[in-house]
Design a protein around this nucleic acid. Sequence first.
DNA 1: CTGTTAGCGCGTTCAG
DNA 2: CTGAACGCGCTAACAG
Lengths: 345, 345
Amino acid sequence: MGKKKETITIYDVAREAGVSMATVSRVVNGNPNVKPATRKKVLDVIRQLGYRPNAVARGLASKKTTTVGVVIPDISNTFYAELTRGIEDIATMYHYNIILSNSDLKKEKELELIETLLEKQVDGLLFLGGEVTDAHREIFSATAVPVVLAATRDEKKEWPSVTIDQIQAAKEATCILVHEGHEKIAYLGGPLTDSVNGYPRYLGYKEALEENGIPFEERLIRLGDYRYRSGYETMKDLLTSNKPVTAVFAASDEMAVGAIHAAQDMERKVPEEISVIGFENIPLSSQVRPLLSTVSVPMYDIGAVAMRLLTKYMNDEPVESGQVLLQYSVELRGSTKLKEWEETR
Amino acid sequence: MGKKKETITIYDVAREAGVSMATVSRVVNGNPNVKPATRKKVLDVIRQLGYRPNAVARGLASKKTTTVGVVIPDISNTFYAELTRGIEDIATMYHYNIILSNSDLKKEKELELIETLLEKQVDGLLFLGGEVTDAHREIFSATAVPVVLAATRDEKKEWPSVTIDQIQAAKEATCILVHEGHEKIAYLGGPLTDSVNGYPRYLGYKEALEENGIPFEERLIRLGDYRYRSGYETMKDLLTSNKPVTAVFAASDEMAVGAIHAAQDMERKVPEEISVIGFENIPLSSQVRPLLSTVSVPMYDIGAVAMRLLTKYMNDEPVESGQVLLQYSVELRGSTKLKEWEETR
DNA sequence: CTGTTAGCGCGTTCAG
DNA sequence: CTGAACGCGCTAACAG
């Protein structure tokens, strides 16, 4: 029960067991070339001495840390938390640990974090959600550490990534509203300068209108920060302007729910008077009334697949394709009127 | 732009700069005993060669990794995600990185993770949400690595912890319902075997009834798993039983919201016919209608304070008290009728 | 099957 | 102010 105490090393075990440290190393690492008898003896001594291998020393000697770095926008964001869970589960499965760090999507912070993770000699790097700029490419190129992008992608396709086809997904969601008969469809989203999520979703919305011959109207566009509050406020603003609006496509579930509440506060019924469809399918969407219709993004899977892909790169296993687009789906629930929707992709 | 490449070490920098590696080490670590001129030269060579210090080697030599281990029940759980963000922010502030791992509150997994983190030579350990058993104490005692508990505590107070007074908080929440005039107050919670959250909250509920001379009724107790669905189902079950219920204290916000929806589905108005109060104050509680009244637990702060406390232990700084109880508050919103509540603690 | 011997990259005395 | 030398704890050839 005594605290502190001198660290006991592989050498102590070797001496105590009457073998060389190489042998101890072998049994610790499950090397089969050890006589069962001596293996048992070593194991006993290990237990008895309470020996715990030093992963840092091992890392220095073997040049492997069994640790991967994860740069994430914000762990308190449900979407990324779910994604991280996927990463962690697969990492655990392959005996890796993850060093997690929040970037808040700040480029400088991202680069700094990547640098730090590389210093810590991570065996691989997972970069989530942020935009891949030339500065990123430069640092990624200069290292031998494999990098996988998740919930974002590299325009130049130089790095592997796991995500969904956002434009297509946004387009499909908007189309549903069109098929419901709407023509005054508002778009509630994030900054268009956000090339990862903001712009693609906006683009999908726009394309859907075009394809259906519905005029695009600037005044039906409202930009916020994807959060609930901004959804509430942009929607209120929209309704206050008194322009006709019969449907809303929001680029995030939080905004969508905020929009629904704004509508309700202004005595507009959802979906009777206004249909709303969101994006992400975070738990919130099934924990509000009416239930939110939304584009279901396989968050957990994106994380899991990205991590799995990374293990392949780390072990030099062959990879079919580094550019993976996962399937999304559209969950039609209570905030829209249409109850079925044939797949058209 | 070339990939891979040989690792460049402190030795290369030394040679190139015409100094010894000791000097390079000094400038890298900001040791002031270096002539400005040579410092500059070394810095130049570092930049030119793109030298990146190897934290693993440094860790082995210095016996410090500037990394802390975090054992968390489930990162995809909003409550813990928020807490983790607090941890990470403070960790970054003190130049630590965190290795995150999910335990799902499984004792065996917790112990395994702790063991792994210790092998990785973390400078400190943050243990969240789980119960501290003798097995935990044994391993904590055997290491020199400081441990801080967050959102849980050690009954024997042998280890520092940061949390809130759950019994008191639950009691206060229940009292609010009592003061609203309710006598048929249901309790929706988690397993009573959960000594960290389940039991204390249940106890607080019970104490509130006792103190107010309200008979405790077994049939008003429903146990689930803290999640939305279990809140919905236990509430439905409760209402179906047709026993009078005019208020509900739920041990989690998700359950509370689930309960509200169950009530609404059974044509009971909240808060007109049934008052509901939750616990945690996760974002969801302000993203539903009616807004959920709840016990606000300072999740972010618990994480931040715990991490700050850990830095003190890691640096052998004096600590006033290792047993910190943070303030909670009761947020009265739309799911209860009472609009004000004088502090009585 | 087992032991010996080199490093892995860096921090840290201790001289000078 | 600077350098030489040792060691952190372990893996990885290479012998035997």
